[in-house]
């Protein structure tokens, strides 16, 4: 018998602090699997955000940096530019980090086509601080700071990051995936791998938005949370490729 599935080497052999059924663990593993498969662990530098995945710097075995809230793309810019040939740089950010406090850093890194990989985990809530409204919380979604449901008249509409960034000339690749089923996990991994491969090939800014769950703060079982993704998140955040410059150029030939 041969081992057909095991913990990737680029993921540290320590328990993660995430709540039971939190999909951060799956996404961490996918990133680590991709790092292993591309053989880039020794040159990869990851940037952790502020939020639930703040301690990601403990979970990946590559060199890591912990960023100020929202600033990961700016730090990644510095790290990448300090040695573009020898650094593979990724940020791992949640929705509050990337689409609220760090929106400027996100948009401008994309506009510059900064040659980095961004893993954007969108679970429509602030998890670490206990379940407040996120820039991606759905209309009507009940959170600690939208106790009567998110009212767009009061606090506007959630932001579709891939769609928004796709209007920029800069970025190379934008795809939205989810991890709520085995089939979707396989697709998510393909997207993450492409986002890293693009960087290796010097193609530029690649962002994978992973629609994710938060059973604890959504107030449901892990199973119900995965179903909630299908029923509520995906209709607002449709899966798919929003930009793929290389594919577009090849199609135009």
């Amino acid at each position: 018998m041969a081992v057909v599935f095991q913990k990737p080497k680029a993921l540290a052999d320590i328990p993660m602090h995430y709540c039971p059924g939190c999909t951060h663990g799956i996404i961490h593993r996918l990133v680590a699997e991709v790092i292993d498969e591309l053989g880039i662990e020794g040159k990869t530098i990851g940037i952790a955000p502020v939020g639930c995945s703040v301690m990601a710097y403990n979970y990946f075995t590559c060199d890591m940096i912990e960023a100020a809230h929202g600033r990961a793309p700016a730090i990644a810019t510095g790290v990448k530019r300090s040695d573009p040939e020898n650094h593979i740089v990724f940020t791992y950010q949640g929705d509050g980090d990337l689409a609220s406090i760090g929106m400027a850093e996100t948009v401008h890194a994309a506009a510059r086509n900064e040659n980095i990989t961004v893993i954007f985990v969108n679970n429509a809530i602030y998890g670490m601080t206990g379940g407040q409204m996120a820039p991606t919380s759905l209309p009507g979604q009940i959170t600690q700071t939208s106790p009567y449901g998110r009212d767009p008249k009061l606090c506007g509409y959630p932001i579709r990051v891939c769609e928004m960034l796709s209007q920029l000339e800069g970025p190379e690749y934008l795809e939205r995936v989810t991890v709520n089923s085995v089939a979707n996990i396989r697709k998510a991994k393909k997207a993450i791998k492409k986002a890293f491969q693009n960087q290796i090939d010097g193609k530029g800014f690649s962002l994978v938005e992973v629609v994710s769950s938060c059973p604890t703060n959504w107030g449901m079982t892990p199973q119900a949370a995965l179903k909630w993704i299908d029923d509520n998140m995906i209709p607002y955040y449709p899966l798919g490729v929003y930009k793929d410059r290389t594919a577009e150029q090849e199609a135009a030939k």
Binding site: F5, H24, G25, R29, V182
Partner: peptide, 19 residues
């Protein structure tokens, strides 16, 4: 049958699969 679906879904890398 060792399809590894369980391991793929596990957020905590609990399961190793041999086949």
């Amino acid at each position: 049958v060792g399809c590894a679906s369980c391991a793929l879904m596990c957020p905590d890398c609990v399961i190793q699969v041999e086949r």
